[in-house]
Design a protein around this nucleic acid. Structure first.
Length: 1030
RNA sequence: GCCCGAGUGGUGGAAUGGUAGACACGGAGGACUUAAAAUCCUCUCCACGAAAGUGGGUGUGGGUUCGAGUCCCACUUCGGGCACCA
């Protein structure tokens, strides 16, 4: 085959790209085969999906297409591999910016959104993606959101059965209630009351509705929103900014507070465990999995009940230590409070109880609280603070004691005071905690501030990994004291250094009998260092236990150590024994040398933490129990269970994740398909009534009452329709299913299509969706799976995140910095193929990289060189064939692994070789096929010029021939003592011996070896020769 | 504070424990041209050296190994996530 005509010297990208984009569209090159129509020889499916964009007014910048190009390259290779590829695109077209536009202009956001969609589509089209646009999905179209509403109704009509570990219909729940009430139903619910079948039947319709609402997966409840009194509206999180005195609205800067309002929720917490477990089965980046795990925040612990009683006549002052073991309850019981803890092993160390200020019990106990007016004031002050403020101010915890009330520790009967404090969150666990200041940093900080008692119940146990106990050696236990001595004059600490071993330690002495540790320390200091004028400052907390092996004594030791802190009053000294003098060196070291790394005793870090704060420090690790009655000497792990059982607590699992608010007081979103009837009952719309379309409204301004603009549409309100709309994430939580069967009017997708496409094989998008879209989609998908609507448990088998592209100045690409590069301009100047090649070549797909205006020239040159080579004389050359087959393997593997940058680089290396040595037409055409996913236009043009049939993009992906990968000769390095001293070219299949002798025979190596003895020669065939000499 | 991830030339980056810096940008020199652009050729980690070469070199310090950018430990800087979750 000869080129039909000489190519023009200059490659006219505009002409070529336009030509092929038109041709592909006309021929339907990228049209996905419909599995429901062509059953004869069904190809294997491959679903490659991009996260569809939200069409904002700003348009695309050069960073946006990066992910799309990557997935397109992947999809194109898979298509050439013979897969039936589903590679669709659409738009997440409901949302705030269009609504802002509507508010600003008074115009309907619909046509505006349509125009944005059109603009985005055009921008995408000129880049030459292989999307099947006939499957486009836009979430704001009624044909689409009909099914979003339908899925909502399924969620509304479902509850979660913990026994079967799946969602079931409300009809089934009602049947259970009618049979035996709710006692035998194990559901995810926040309801506490129980009722029998008989009682259930006596309930009114309204009461039943109210009860069922606590079971539904889509439910109405009260939730906190961001409320701006001045604007009379609710604001989304992204409409709020930080002001000097807490959060304010972005527009106008009005203060924003948290306010509980009626809301629709999604009971995503029902799926917490399955969302966690499902992560094991999917091929996602680890960091995204980790983010989801943290977000779900599963923690296991115990729920323990504390009885509340009226305090003795004298209100219990904070300073008074708890009274141990009262024989008689000081007063009458006031009910109980449940606390959640992950550390039931510290129960004996509880010195007070803290409730969240919002805890329901606080109000209930009003009459028993003797300082109610102060408490009430405190609660009021706290409620003014936004949650963000409460947590961001952080360091300072505030609280107030509920005087007149005490709680009884169920483990030992101690009475402890009850406080409310802002560091306890109402929404987590039971909204109440047992405070163990000795072993929890927050409790410690609070106890220190309010002078509450601190009781240690866990002794740290340190096992020295470097000197572990040895088998068969005697075990010696002893009680010791460690003296930490500080000289305030020279600001140094006293240590002794063992001369023989070079160990640094503090001064250690054995405690004999029930000797006072301070006396023991003073005695030891005098004996070992001679210092006698020391001031005892304080004990550094309780004892620690260390297990280690002593080499010099040959003993396994367990040392229970009491750290004591002294200051040097004067350097008065007495003589010390010769033995001590010879064995040890006495040193004063500065703080920088008085650090755990330099000290031989491994528990030193704990003491130092206690030393650093005048009040000491909480030890939050585990250990063995002390001061815990019968549980003493148990390990934390053993004690957790044992103590929970002993106090009749429950082992429970809690999650940090909360139910998702599913309502926006907005116009531009899916209407929630429910009717509030005048009798107070809620009637879900029937399927045939869907879609419930958005009505026209006169004004897009918020109603001013915290309600959406829909609240001012009379006909809408008259029908009793819900005035909230769905949040932005509703439409995007299932769009990937719609692409499978986008025109289906009878279902969200047909069964055949669902069973064929099943799930997304490759999902590409930004990491910023880790806790939003990617979690909600998984939740909905699992729900649809439970109800039998989809065949898979997870929607996205493999996920890849593309990195962002920043401005050339290293800053984020934005109008503000004037560093935005528009892809349209780049396509115009360099061509879509150059843009695509460059964006893939720039660096690793998942890395964040700066755009380079100069760099793209290299990609353009590359394409021009391919273009030029197509016209030059072609000669067969074995070297070129070899490198081509290497390139086939490399490019194939790299695309499979999303290592596009090295794939492009290997194409460049291949082209360099072709230009140098010449290439046959056959080989060149194969090269074009490898290039096709990256530069689809120029590849198809040259393919056709060289007589290829049809489109290059439907041709079969080349396979490498292994025989060309085997090298005849290899060049390997020769090292002497780890330094490369020579190079050896030798037959690839040479045996070790001949390589060794060839290496030793090299003149340069001979020079180096002159007068030295070769100790060892290591030969790794085809890699390296390593010679070790004396 | 906790949990991830990353530190390699002037720049973006490459490197299954085996000759560090592939590929590309930029830079220097040269060819072609009346000239410029484009294109092509040569060089380009640093220091010393005319060169051959010698020495150093992947954030810092230590370790394992015949051999470490890669594995282990500690530190440090930067980026991301979570942040009073009991």
């Amino acid at each position: 085959m000869k080129p039909k005509q000489a190519k023009p010297a200059h490659y006219d990208h505009a002409k070529v790209e336009k030509k092929w984009q038109k041709a592909w569209e006309e021929k339907g090159t990228y049209k996905t085969e419909d599995p429901t129509k062509n059953n004869k020889k069904q190809k294997k499916k491959m679903y490659v999906l991009d996260m569809f964009p939200y069409p904002s007014g700003a348009g695309l910048h050069v960073g946006h297409p990066r992910g799309y190009i990557g997935s397109d390259v992947y999809a194109r290779m898979k298509r050439m591999n013979g897969f039936n590829v589903l590679h669709p695109m659409g738009f997440d077209s409901f949302g705030l910016p269009a609504e802002q536009y509507a508010i600003a202009t008074g115009k309907h956001p619909g046509p505006f959104t349509d125009s944005l969609v059109k603009q985005y589509k055009k921008q995408l089209e000129i880049i030459g993606f292989s999307y099947d646009w006939s499957r486009e999905v836009d979430t704001h179209r009624p044909e689409y959101y009909k099914w979003t509403q339908w899925i909502f109704l399924q969620l509304y009509d479902a509850w979660y059965d913990k026994k079967k570990n799946k969602a079931r219909t409300i009809a089934e729940l009602i049947a259970l209630f009618e049979k035996s009430g709710n006692r035998s139903v194990d559901a995810v619910t926040d309801i506490e009351e129980t009722f029998s079948a008989k009682e259930w039947r006596t309930f009114s319709q309204l009461e039943k509705q109210e009860i069922l609402m606590h079971y539904r997966l889509a439910y109405e409840g009260f939730g906190e929103v961001n409320w701006s009194e001045d604007l009379g509206t609710v604001l989304a999180n992204d409409e709020i900014v930080d002001g000097p005195n807490g959060p304010v609205s972005e527009r106008g800067g009005f203060p924003v507070i948290k306010k509980a309002m009626r809301q629709w929720f999604m009971r995503i917490t029902a799926y917490a465990d399955r969302l966690l477990e499902g992560l094991e089965d999917i091929n996602w980046p680890n960091n995204i999995k980790e983010i989801q795990r943290n977000w779900i925040g599963r923690s296991e612990g115990s729920e323990i009940e504390f009885q509340l009683v009226a305090a003795p006549k004298e209100p219990l002052a904070g300073q008074t230590p708890p009274t141990p073991h009262p024989k008689v309850l000081s007063s009458s019981p006031l009910g109980s409070v449940g606390v959640f803890t992950t550390r039931p092993d510290t129960l004996f160390g509880v010195t007070y109880i803290v409730l969240a200020p919002e805890h329901a019990l606080v109000e209930d106990l009003k009459n028993a609280i003797t300082n109610w007016s102060e408490v009430e004031k405190y609660i009021k002050d706290i409620s003014k603070k936004d949650e963000a403020e409460r947590t961001s101010a952080e360091k300072v915890k505030t609280g107030i004691q509920l005087k007149g009330i005490t709680a009884i520790n169920p483990a030992n009967g101690e009475e402890v005071p009850v406080w409310i404090a802002d560091y306890v969150l109402a929404g987590y666990g039971t909204g109440a905690v047992m405070a163990v200041p000795a072993h929890d940093e927050r409790d410690f900080a609070f106890a220190t501030k309010y002078k509450l008692p601190i009781k240690e119940v866990i002794r740290p146990v340190i096992i020295d990994d470097k000197n572990p106990h040895q088998k068969g050696k005697p075990l010696v236990s002893r009680n010791v004291v460690h003296a930490l001595v500080f000289d305030p004059k020279q600001k140094k600490y006293l240590i002794i250094r063992n001369k023989k071993f070079g160990w640094d330690t503090t001064i250690i002495g054995g405690i004999e009998g029930d000797e006072n540790p301070v006396d023991a320390a003073l005695r030891e200091l005098r004996e070992e260092t001679g210092y006698i004028d020391l001031t005892f400052k304080r004990l550094l907390g309780g004892t620690t236990k260390a297990a280690y092996y002593t080499k010099h004594k040959g003993e396994n030791r367990i040392a229970v150590a009491q750290p004591v802190y002294f200051e040097l009053a004067s350097d008065k000294r007495v003589a010390i024994g010769n033995d001590e003098d010879e064995a040890n060196e006495i040193l004063w070291v500065s703080a920088k040398d008085f650090v755990p790394e330099k000290m031989v005793n491994s528990e030193f870090a704990i003491w130092l933490a206690r030393l650093s704060n005048e009040h000491g420090a909480a030890y939050t690790g585990e250990g063995e129990l002390i001061n815990s009655d019968d549980f003493n000497e148990l390990s934390s792990e053993e004690a957790k269970k044992a103590i929970t059982v002993f106090v009749k607590g429950k082992i429970v699992t809690k999650y940090r994740m909360r139910d998702a608010i599913f309502a926006r007081q907005r116009y531009w979103g899916e209407p929630i398909p429910l009717r509030h009837q005048t009798n107070g009952l809620i009637a879900p719309l029937k399927e045939k009534e869907l879609p419930l379309e958005l009505p026209n409204v006169k004004s897009y301004q918020p109603a001013g009452t915290g309600e959406s603009p829909l609240a001012s549409v009379k006909s809408w309100v008259k029908e009793g329709y819900e005035t909230n709309t769905m949040p932005g994430w509703a439409g995007s939580s299932w769009y990937f299913l719609r692409y499978m069967d986008p025109a289906n009017a009878k279902a969200f997708a047909g069964e055949k299509a669902l069973n064929y496409w099943k799930d997304v094989d490759m999902y590409v998008g930004g990491a910023e969706h880790a806790t939003g879209h990617l979690l909600y989609s998984r939740f909905w998908h699992k729900f649809l799976f439970d109800m039998g609507y989809v065949p898979t448990k997870e929607p996205f088998k493999t996920l890849k995140n593309q990195g962002l592209i920043g401005g050339a100045d290293g800053r984020k690409m934005s109008k503000r910095w004037g560093n935005v590069i528009n892809p349209d301009d780049v396509v115009k100047t360099y061509g879509a193929d150059s843009l695509r090649v460059f964006e893939m070549f720039l660096g690793p797909f998942e890395s964040h990289l700066p755009w380079s205006t100069e760099g793209i020239i290299g990609s353009r040159r590359f394409i021009e060189r391919v273009w030029r080579l197509a016209t030059s004389v072609r000669i067969a050359n074995e070297g070129s064939t070899r490198i081509l087959h290497k390139t086939i393997k490399k490019v194939t593997d790299d695309i499979e692994n999303f290592a596009f940058n090295t794939a492009v680089s290997s194409l460049m290396i291949c082209l360099n070789e072709f230009e140098k040595s010449g290439v046959s037409e056959k080989d060149f055409v194969i090269f074009l096929q490898l290039l096709a996913p990256f530069a689809p236009h120029v590849a198809d043009e040259l393919w056709n010029e060289l007589g290829g049939k049809g489109s290059i993009h439907t041709s079969a992906w080349p396979k490498h021939n292994p025989k060309y990968l085997v090298e005849k000769e290899v060049s390997i390095g020769v090292q002497i003592n780890g330094k490369v001293r020579g190079e050896l070219t030798i037959a690839a299949d040479a045996d070790q011996k001949s390589i060794e002798s060839a290496a030793l025979a090299l003149p340069r190596i001979q020079e180096y070896l002159a007068g030295k003895t070769v100790k060892k020669v290591i030969v790794i065939p085809a890699k390296i020769v390593s010679i070790v000499v004396e």
